[in-house]
């Protein structure tokens, strides 16, 4: 009976006209990398927040807690603070950048260069609270106030291994737009990934770094335009990097 039933199933499936399978594998890898990165950043943020809480507690309570803080290891962070695979609303689209990549000679990107480019790409407004990542990660954040109050934007750049044999940037970015109503810091996230593995992540929070509610600095369309600018990368235009070094010679480390 099993054979007969399986043949029956197969026959009915063969009579179907399924749509093309599409790039489910490539999309799974891209989404998986993005989620993996987000989990890592969330965990880092949780550790930083925990250390900050313990640190402030040490100030209030005195030396005994300082000893406790020194004993803190990453393993002591409760497992629940790691982000689970989130049930997010997300959609993927493909954006043609209109150019095969940024022209001109490139050099290793810096956080200053990212801030410099970010301020060029944002809508007009007064910027403040500029910050960079505490480690070598290419992550920056700032507040922008267009007259309606401050709002935060965060941008991160990373390089994954390329898809297939793609070693050049290519002219087509895959963009993932994610809405996460449960987390104000990642209320809107736009990830643009290029065929060479370059990943640009733009977070548009609906709160400030201290979790005070705020407006969103960008619409989804504006965030997509920002994320798909071909000048982002782990290498950036040499002149832009040089200008940024003069403009932002000292930028504070941002709180996670």
């Amino acid at each position: 009976m099993t054979e007969d039933l399986r043949a029956w199933f197969e026959a009915e499936l063969n009579a179907e006209r399924p749509p093309p399978l599409g790039d489910v594998v490539g999309t799974a890898i891209r989404d998986g990398r993005r989620l993996r990165r987000k989990r890592r950043l969330t965990l880092l943020g949780s550790i930083a927040a925990l250390i900050a809480v313990l640190g402030s507690g040490a100030v209030m309570l005195g030396d005994p807690l300082v000893t406790q803080r020194e004993a803190l290891s990453p393993q002591s962070v409760p497992p629940g603070t790691a982000a689970p695979i989130p049930a997010l609303e997300a959609r993927t689209l493909t954006i043609h950048s209109g150019t095969a990549g940024a022209v001109g000679s490139r050099t290793k990107a810096t956080s200053a260069a990212m801030l410099h480019l970010l301020t060029q790409l944002l809508p007009p407004g007064r910027t403040s609270h500029l910050g960079i990542a505490p480690d070598d990660d290419l992550r920056v954040q700032l507040y922008v106030d267009d007259g309606r109050g401050s709002a935060m934007v965060r941008v991160a750049v990373a390089k994954n291994s390329p898809f297939g044999d793609e070693s050049s940037r290519g002219g087509m970015a895959t963009v993932l737009i994610t809405h996460d109503p449960d987390n104000c810091l990642t209320a809107l996230t736009v990830d643009a990934e290029w065929p060479d593995g370059t990943l640009v992540e733009v977070d548009v929070p609906t709160c400030l770094a201290g979790a005070e509610p705020s407006r969103a600095a960008l619409t989804a369309d504006q965030a997509v335009m920002l994320a798909t600018d071909p000048r982002w990368g782990v290498t950036m235009d040499r002149q832009l990097v040089a200008e940024a070094a003069e403009r932002f010679d000292r930028v504070p480390v941002a709180a996670e």
Partner: peptide, 28 residues
């Protein structure tokens, strides 16, 4: 996987989404 998903839900688009979700979780 998509064929199995289709037999479960009888909707190719949903089958595609389920396959996508499953592969992403498998990747992770």
């Amino acid at each position: 996987l998509r064929n199995t998903a289709f037999m479960l839900c009888r909707d190719w688009h949903l089958a595609q989404d389920l396959t996508q979700t499953a592969l992403t979780k498998l990747f992770l």
